[in-house]
Amino acid sequence: MSYTVQFSQVTPYMGYLAGGACLSLQMAAISFFAGGTVGLACASVLEYGPAWARWPVKAYVVFFLNTPLLVQIFFFYFALPDVGIMLGSEQAVLVGMSLNAGSYLTEIMRTGFRVLRRSELEAAETLGFTRLQTIRHVIWPHICKVLFLPLSNQYIILTLTTSIAAIFGVEELTGRAYNVNSQTFRSLEVFLIAALYYVGLTFVASIMLHMVGYHVFGIRRKVF
């Protein structure tokens, strides 16, 4: 044993790492909403769109679901400048993550579209609901209940995925952990603290999502 664990050299950097964690959260949120938009658009095309539009969307989803995010970002980062699109490292990561999340979210949103049954809508019509009332009281609650769990899981997964940005030199949590590591050479300690941050972040997010799910949508199952 030639190595003793010593946290004292790393503790001054806790605030610095927390700043990185903020950037991680930010990136997760951006890619979640961008991916959600992409997913919603693609899912509507897949379910209701014309046949010629369905084919390329399907290809996009299948291809992005079955290739690694890291390689996709490499591709955006290094190949897009050849066609004249210059992306900064953070932008490239965000584009990659959004498109990747978009493919997952397409699949999730599709299940949301499918849960609605014709009989439900007919029942609403029989009760004399207006279109808006149908959406408000029938469609929306049902879709929320089905989609809430997979969407919150996806958000947690995205928070963890942001660590890939470190490979491209973005100074989020893992990137800053790399920096601290090269300054202090306390590798194990730095990455233990980074791991703790990730566990803490996602745990808090899980608990909050669970509370939202329970109180707003009445979902009794655990989010985590």
């Binding site: 660590s163 890939i164 490979i167 952990a177 590798s187 194990l188 233990l192 791991a195």
Partner: peptide, 18 residues
Amino acid sequence: RIPFLVKLMLVLFTFQFM
């Protein structure tokens, strides 16, 4: 709840530590 990259580093440095 630990990202793959961080886990990789932890395993790597744990072996180094040992």
